[in-house]
Amino acid sequence: MAEELMDNENQYVVFRLDREIYGLEISAVREIITMQPITEVPGTEDYIEGVINLRGRVIPVFNLHRRFNLAEGEITRSTRIVVVEVEGNSIGMVVDGVSEVVRITRDLIEQPSSILCGIGEEYLTGVAKMADRLVILLDLNRVLQVNEGTVLENIC
């Protein structure tokens, strides 16, 4: 069913957060679900929204707005939870909307340092310059890294 991927391209799940468009490598994404009631866990970092029940498993949910120091988002009909899997652990991330899956060839990707916008560059692997928009590609391991020391700077 899937068309052959070219050597120099990758598939990304593209979602919206605030006004920006982000991309996550599709291999890490398990599923995308609608918003669920989230149980807050007291005493955790503020970017951890809480936990949800994913078919009998309790998984943590990250609030990317707070993680990236963006303005607090509202929950709308298009709000989704992107469930990713890292080292056998499932983690949910609240996003403002998921639009599509795109193929991005490597030559479209630029190093994050050239365009600094929205979030700290330490979370990015690069920025893809598509025909009609910019897609910020996330470094999932960095995003989910707990207790990291760097202070986030809001540059924009």
Binding site: G50, V58, V146
Partner: peptide, 27 residues
């Protein structure tokens, strides 16, 4: 009993989570 997993880690006063009949999570 379900574990909160390593991303949440040790939380003061909470030892884990469970799923209630309505599908919601209780600590």
């Amino acid at each position: 009993i379900k574990s909160l997993g390593k991303y949440i880690g040790d939380v003061q006063g909470i030892s884990g989570a469970t799923i209630l009949g309505d599908g919601s999570v209780a600590l």
